[in-house]
Design a protein around this nucleic acid. Structure first.
Length: 494
RNA sequence: GGCCUUGUAGUCAAGCGGUCAAGACGUCGCCCUCUCACGGCGAAGGCCCGGGUUCGAUUCCCGGCAAGGUCACCA
């Protein structure tokens, strides 16, 4: 097949008339929060218009492959409900969707650009560092003005790269959907490498070729690529291709001056999950970190994925960087936990409850019920439950509480009065227990707290507990509750 | 250093010439209450600075300043 026929065939495959976006991670093995947000926004832009969301793996840097990295990407997208419509694992009309599997493509297109006068072969030595390029002005590269025929001939025997031929004069303007028009002087642009010595494309070149060939209408990416965007326009123009809409997103920061990064130990999506955060809460929080709904929805802060797809608009994307605030994530997580059905929460909390409570006699669902309003993240659970399996050592000072009007003396009295009442109970449930406690308080003419505080201390050995005496006694059961109250009496009498 | 971008309370942010400058997290106080939570009510806290334009600037323009990005055969 001739190159011309090949190019025509590739053009013919491109779908038109629909919004098509792509998430294009390089498999570095780490889905950080900024990445996740970019994936989310990319997905939402597509789904807002009933468009197509594509996954493409950008693995053109052979020196940086990380094992298992692709699995993390698939797993994260799956778990987050960011289902792609086309991708390496499910195929699609414009595959393959892994760049190394497209490697034969890029050389053809690079040469096409040489033929059209927008790129050239360069035989110069590799510039390894900033220092190397310091003295040498790229613009003066002799290869740039080499005779085309001669360059072609040398390319047969010498190693080469193909560079973009950027005009030395004038300016280039490109448009970004959230940043608007940005104009730069052409002499600030360098003749970037398009095709590397190893025949693989650079990120910038592969992006342009693939985005075009895959019919991408909206290019969503981090704002670190903002500076190279003008060169993209020049490339598209060189090819004679239609320029897609750019949507650059500012980074998610760990503090005022640093981006979130693996190196600083900032949490990835998986880290957050492991740390007890719910997927939906993470997504909701991340969606609002750098985007906000307009108009009537401006005050809305809880969104399902479906609601996000409907509400999401590019105009709401913030241009300035956003600092990741774990405290606010906790708030969202707590809200999502409270909104779960008791059954769902009990199921989610069970492994954490069982970490602390080994005694099978104690009801998981009852304990979960105490926890639901007291849990910000699932990993907080075990430490709240350390008094169930065994009554902890505690100080008699615990019995003294000003607001409840209790002290060691009257606590002993309450415990001694309460013991026979509880012993005589035929039923052991919350309702019965509650009236037993309030009954004594009434009889003694004191506030409920004066009765309930000492018993709660005796039964839990803790100043602070999830739930009150009634619930705790109910869960512990009659025998264990009475045993602990007797122990309390002994302690106070000693 | 050149080029580009950004700048509303500690944080996320609404605002798009005239507002007592929304809302949320966090903080503090009060109420509810058998502790802690949940919930309810309330408070403190802000338009980076300086010039313009305008009857009037958070909003428009210019200049500073600060922060970020980019100037790789990495993405």
């Amino acid at each position: 097949m001739s190159d011309t026929a090949f190019f025509e065939e590739m053009e013919a495959r491109i779908p038109h008339g629909q919004v098509r976006t792509r998430f294009a991670p390089s498999p570095t093995g780490y889905m950080h929060v900024g990445n996740l947000r970019t994936a989310l926004y990319t997905y939402l832009i597509a789904k807002h218009s009933d468009g197509v969301f594509i996954l493409r793996i950008e693995d053109t840097d052979q020196s940086r492959q990380v094992e298992g990295a692709e699995e993390i990407i698939y797993h994260t997208l799956e778990e987050c409900g960011l289902r792609h419509d086309e991708g390496p694992d499910i195929g699609g009309p414009v595959g393959p969707y892994i760049q190394t599997e497209r490697r034969s493509l890029y050389g053809k297109y690079a040469k096409m650009l040489v033929g059209r006068g927008h790129a050239y072969y360069c035989f110069c030595d590799k510039t390894e560092s900033e220092e190397d390029s310091g003295e040498f002005e790229r613009a003066d590269c002799p290869c740039r003005s080499l005779d085309p025929a001669e360059a072609l001939k040398r390319a047969e025997t010498e190693p080469y790269v193909i560079r973009q031929k950027v005009p030395h004069e004038g300016t280039t303007t490109f448009h970004d959907a959230s940043f608007g028009d940005i104009t730069v002087p052409n002499d600030s642009l360098d003749d970037q490498v398009l095709l590397k010595r190893d025949g693989l494309p650079t990120y910038n070149f592969a992006n342009v070729v693939d985005d075009h060939l895959m019919g991408i209408t909206h290019v969503v990416r981090g704002s670190e690529y903002l500076a190279s965007a003008p060169k993209y326009n020049l490339l598209y123009e060189g090819f004679g291709w239609e320029i897609p809409e750019y949507v650059h997103c500012s980074p998610v920061m760990r503090d005022q001056q640093h981006k979130m990064s693996k190196r600083h130990g900032d949490p990835s999506y998986e880290d957050l999950r492991r740390d007890g955060f719910l997927t939906d809460a993470i997504l909701n929080y991340v969606a609002l970190l750098g985007w906000s709904p307009k108009g009537e929805l401006a005050e809305k802060e809880f969104f399902t994925m479906k609601e996000l797809s409907e509400a999401f608009d590019i105009a709401g994307i913030s241009k300035s960087p956003a600092i990741f605030d774990i405290e606010k994530l906790k708030y969202f997580n707590a809200q999502y936990i409270r909104n779960m059905t008791p059954e769902a929460f009990s199921k989610a909390a069970e492994p954490y409850i069982r970490q602390a409570v080994k005694n099978e006699a104690y009801s998981v669902s009852k304990i979960a019920a105490l926890l639901q309003n007291r849990t910000e993240k699932l990993t907080d659970i075990p430490e709240k439950l350390d008094f169930f399996d065994e009554l902890p050592e505690y100080e008699t000072e615990f019995y003294t509480n000003k607001k409840s009007k209790t002290n060691a003396e009257n606590s002993l009295d309450v415990l001694k009065r309460m013991l026979p009442i509880l012993e005589g109970l035929e039923n052991w449930d919350e309702e019965t227990l509650k009236s037993a406690f309030t009954g004594l308080a009434e009889e003694m003419g004191c506030k409920n707290a004066t009765v309930m505080w000492p018993v709660r201390i005796a039964v839990s050995g803790r100043l602070v507990t999830p739930g009150g005496v009634v619930e705790i006694c109910d869960i512990l059961g009659k025998e264990e509750s009475l045993r602990r109250i007797r122990a309390g009496i002994e302690k106070l009498e000693a």
